[in-house]
Design a binder for these strands. Structure first.
Lengths: 134, 134
DNA sequence: CAGCATCCAGCATGATACTG
DNA sequence: CAGTATCATGCTGGATGCTG
């Protein structure tokens, strides 16, 4: 096998088989978090989500919902009426997923100032602007 | 402001100004987690990381390290010797970032079986395979 | 050793038009 | 209403060659 032997390290953190990577690749999609967040407030119809998330294309919304459904994070319920009525809701698994995401969000929000100061320092170091006064 | 009023929702979760999105976009990069994980074990030189992560191109490794440096997650120390010697290390902030990431990793690893069962069910529902025996 | 600059391929995303 | 199908594109990421 091609595993790194000299260390107990990543091995295949980016392998398609790495669970973290699989899930991370999904939630890092542009719309996934928006959808999950929306559904945390309750069941919604396609159009509800579409209007709420505002900016998402039909293609992307559908794609995101399908991926979430495939992973068991949301349920899709079709009411065979006219006009059609499709409702999306989070599963328990989906609500569980929301927790670590929220943890990450909170950590980030707590430290965003620190991060932005670091960025400012970095930018300045790269881009030595004329010290406004010698 | 352009914030959604009718709900306390996403507002601009995908806006460039959303902290969560900013950080998520970074850690969702193919190599960021690998680099952070590696550096959790201690200071490393460029080549150490390059060899350890194995599969990363120079471009991507450099790019990833620069982004992490810009955000204040790693320090880059250049020893002006010949040949050059550059050492990378996690900052406290970087170690802090590792925690929510680890939390996500753990949640995923705990639930990956459930996710994969959901996927199997979904695939089957989409792709009604001939029931091996009528 | 530790990069940077350039070129290129593929996929993710997005806009548009059409359908049950 | 809730999608599907197609086309266009922009950016991510990888390969290659050069430098202090």
């Amino acid at each position: 096998m091609t595993t790194v032997e000299s260390s107990g390290l990543p091995a295949d953190v980016y392998s398609a088989k790495c669970p973290t990577r699989q899930v991370l690749d999904h939630i890092s999609g542009k719309w996934t978090i928006l959808v999950v967040d929306s559904l945390l407030e309750g069941t919604m119809r396609y159009t509800d989500l579409s209007r709420r998330i505002e900016g998402v294309s039909q293609k992307m919304l559908t794609q995101t919902l399908r991926a979430l459904e495939a992973d068991g994070f949301v349920t899709r319920t079709v009411h065979p009426t006219i006009p059609p009525r499709v409702e999306y809701a989070l599963t328990d698994l989906g609500r569980g997923l929301a927790e670590p995401i929220t943890a990450l969000r909170r950590w980030t929000e707590t430290h965003i100032n620190e991060i932005e100061r670091a960025r400012a320092r970095f930018a300045e170091a790269q881009n030595p602007p004329p010290p406004s006064r010698a």
